[in-house]
């Protein structure tokens, strides 16, 4: 597209990835209320540390400010949003209408998700939608951009929404052997980038990436490795034992436990845990940078946005690069 200088969307995230930089994204969780100030404060913590921040969409099936509304607020603060969109709450009409609105508001990145099941959240009585799945959602958003058509095939007359389209993959979900193939399906659907589930089991992730590289999928889409700082050994244990699809090795739990050993003062103990959590996260980012096919890191510091800057800094990824150049088409 001439107006986008050869970029698909022209988003900052796209520019950084196209330029070959190791990209950094983070997560910004909207509040469970209508307070714009929360977004402003969180955006200030992330601005300058990341290329873009994912704005979650009723994460864990709990009602929060919408990803589009919060994304538009973040954009005003100078933080580029990645609007997350799940298939749980909307059908293809609702999703496409929201995509048009989001684009009109200036949003340029989207992450297409299936969505956590509503029974986990605060409205377990709700009817879910799942008119489409995440692979089909990727295809639909790419179709809006590249074919200029709605999902039904009808032409979009006027401004076409051009998003940089992402999808998620959980390398630790089962069946493990199918995961790289499923990632391939998302790339085939047109996903420009992938953000993975949080990685704590690095050897297993390496195995996953080896298969991804063997399939050549890393050349079809940018893969951002998901990482996240742990706050306490309890959180690590909870993720290890209770969260389906999470893989937290015992060594990580032990590392967190050891960090607080011998410290009596409660506050000092909590601080020691957090410091170790940041260290583990930084270590993992360093390891990710060595893995073939990994194009960046996606930092999920859930309700701990303050952690992002020290992590990015600790990983030697500050300042973030600025890309203005026109890509070679």
């Amino acid at each position: 597209m001439s107006d986008l200088n050869g970029y698909k969307s022209g988003s900052n995230l796209e520019k950084i990835l196209r330029a070959g930089h190791f990209a950094v994204t983070a997560e910004l969780g909207p509040p469970k209320n209508a307070d714009a100030e929360v977004i402003r404060k969180k955006a200030a913590l992330l601005k300058g540390c990341v290329e873009a921040a994912n704005i979650t969409d009723n994460q864990t099936a709990i009602v929060r400010m919408s990803s589009i509304g919060a994304g538009a607020l973040a954009l005003r603060e100078g933080l580029e949003p990645v609007m997350q969109m799940t298939c749980r709450d909307r059908n293809r009409l609702g999703m496409q209408g929201d995509l048009l609105g989001a684009y009109a508001l200036g949003l340029r990145n989207i992450l297409c998700l299936t969505g956590d099941h509503q029974t986990f959240g605060n409205h377990p009585q709700a009817k879910n939608v799942h008119d489409m799945d995440s692979v089909q959602l990727v295809q639909m958003v790419v179709g809006l951009r590249d074919k200029g058509c709605f999902q039904c095939g009808e032409e979009i007359k006027g401004v076409v929404p051009r998003f940089f389209v992402g999808a998620a993959e959980n390398p630790f979900g089962d069946p493990f052997e199918f995961r790289p193939l499923r990632l391939g399906k998302k790339a085939k659907a047109g996903a420009d980038f992938i953000q993975t589930q949080m990685i704590y089991n690095v050897p297993k992730f390496r195995e996953f990436m080896k298969r991804v590289v063997d399939l050549g999928v890393h050349k079809q889409t940018y893969i951002l490795a998901g990482v996240g700082p742990l706050k306490t050994p309890g959180a690590a244990k909870y993720m290890r034992d209770q969260v389906p699809g999470m893989d937290v090795p015992d060594e990580i739990v032990e590392r967190m436990e050891t960090a607080g050993k011998g410290i009596e003062d409660k506050k000092a103990k909590a601080a020691a845990y957090r410091e170790e959590g940041l260290k583990i996260c930084i270590d993992i980012i360093h390891q990710m940078r060595e893995i073939e096919g990994v194009a960046g890191a996606h930092i999920m510091a859930i309700e701990w946005e303050e952690a992002v800057k020290p992590i990015v800094e600790g990983a030697g990824l500050l300042p973030r690069p600025v890309v203005e150049a026109v890509p070679s088409t």
């Binding site: 299936t114 969505g115 956590d116 986990f120 799945d133 995440s134 993959e169 589930q197 699809g245």
Partner: peptide, 17 residues
């Protein structure tokens, strides 16, 4: 979730999230 293109990320040890 009535998925048509493979399991979601919550599939664990053969069980549903």
């Amino acid at each position: 979730k009535q998925l048509l293109n493979g399991p979601c990320g919550g599939s664990s040890k053969g069980k549903c999230e």
